[in-house]
Design a protein around this nucleic acid. Sequence first.
DNA 1: CCAATCATGTTAGAAATTCTTACATTGATT
DNA 2: AATCAATGTAAGAATTTCTAACATGATTGG
Lengths: 111, 111
Amino acid sequence: MGSDSSYKYKKVITIGIVKELTGLSERQIRYYEERKLIFPERTPGGNRKYSFEDVELLVEIANKIEDGVQTHEIRKEMLRAQKKQNPDEMKRKMIQGQLNAHFGIRKGPYS
Amino acid sequence: MGSDSSYKYKKVITIGIVKELTGLSERQIRYYEERKLIFPERTPGGNRKYSFEDVELLVEIANKIEDGVQTHEIRKEMLRAQKKQNPDEMKRKMIQGQLNAHFGIRKGPYS
DNA sequence: CCAATCATGTTAGAAATTCTTACATTGATT
DNA sequence: AATCAATGTAAGAATTTCTAACATGATTGG
């Protein structure tokens, strides 16, 4: 089964490689993080680590921006898309802390 | 199709991350390269880049060494294993230059 | 037994990569 | 005109990686 697919989600790629894979500048990559569109992990020393999934997401983001969509709007899209995500994908992201820490996940039905 | 599986073979991981993923020391990782058991690519600046496949191979190598098998012997095993490899895997490795440059591949049936 | 080889550690200094912060720019939007 | 958005660039520090060399405790082949 898809146990191989963990390659896609493991954060192992440094920013220089991401730059090569995406064609984006480091400035852009860090800026999209600042705008809360992407959430790399860090080495103990503080260096960013990305996954292949992140790389793909970055390309999508860059495309939308090229189409004139603002980061603010992209973020809203992402939050919207999240609500109707399949439970497995959801569970994975929760485990990897990609949601909990960065998007506002409500714990109960209220508030 | 398995176009997703290219994640496994793309050389995007720096040695520090490989160290974390495998538990090996940098010394060990570089030594196994010196003994021609593994073939990272390089950044323009000369830094090593590994794939997930490399990471897995490194763990296998380390296990064999722990079992008392010498690098010399491990290399022979690998060369042996190569001869009966499926053509697709073969093609991929050729393309990625993991064989041609490092193992002696005969072009014709003789010599 | 002995010299050589194996596998690994360690050190040192240089080079490459990444980090944060700050200021600059251009084009929209208000 | 003032603000915001997206990106570039620069500076200096910090982190990571590199190569080369020397050290060491097995192991091993003769």
